[in-house]
Computed example of a mutant assay.
Amino acid sequence: MGHRITGVGIFFFLLVHVLDTSLVRVSPDAYDAVIGAYKHPIMIVGEIGLVGAIVFHAFNGLRIILVDFWKQGTRYHRQMLWAVLALWFVTMAAFSVRHLMLFVQGG
């Protein structure tokens, strides 16, 4: 279920990304306004959430491939899920700390 939810979330992000980027051809002022809104401090939470969704989707996708194509995959699917969650947590902890440091420093 988590794989599907993150997939749909990533899809909608990409849809919005394409639409807001296409504004540059229609109205550069509208594009600047949208990009300016993205620089709001609350967007840091959205950025961390987006990266979290992408990282989980990627790690879990590898787990699904192993379950589907590895003979022992169904036997170890629960352990692999815990490994995915552990990898996700470590990756997100490192990313979040670095991302927040850059935000605080203004970079």
Rank of each mutant, 00 (worst) to 15 (best):
H40C: 00
S27P: 10
A53K: 02
V34Q: 05
F89I: 11
G61H: 03
A30D: 10
I48N: 00
R25K: 13
S22G: 07
G52S: 06
I42R: 06
H3Q: 13
L15Q: 00
L15C: 04
A33D: 11
A33P: 02
S22C: 09
V34C: 01
V97D: 12
M1Y: 13
G73C: 02
G107N: 12
M43F: 01
T6A: 14
Y76P: 00
V8K: 03
A93T: 13
F11C: 14
T91V: 12
Q79G: 11
S22D: 08
R4H: 07
F12E: 04
R63Q: 05
F56T: 03
H99W: 06
W82S: 10
T74G: 14
H99S: 07
F13L: 10
Y31K: 08
A53M: 14
H40N: 09
F69A: 08
W88Y: 14
A58I: 14
L87N: 04
V55E: 00
A86R: 05
H40K: 02
F103E: 14
G9A: 07
V45N: 01
H57A: 14
Y76M: 06
A37L: 15
T6S: 13
F13W: 14
S27L: 10
Y31V: 04
Q79Y: 08
I42A: 14
V97S: 10
V97Y: 15
A53F: 10
G7V: 02
W88C: 08
V24G: 03
M101L: 12
T91Y: 06
H40Y: 01
Q105M: 07
W88T: 10
M1P: 12
L66N: 11
V67K: 10
P28T: 02
M43Q: 02
Y31P: 01
S22I: 01
V84Y: 02
Q72T: 11
F95V: 13
A33V: 03
L19N: 03
F95I: 14
T91L: 12
Q72L: 13
R25V: 13
H99C: 03
L102A: 10
G36L: 03
V51A: 11
A33R: 11
E47M: 13
M101V: 15
T91F: 11
L19Y: 06
R75V: 15
Q72A: 15
P28V: 02
A33Y: 02
I42T: 11
L81K: 09
D32L: 10
L14V: 12
R25N: 12
R75G: 06
L14T: 11
L102T: 04
V84C: 06
V51R: 01
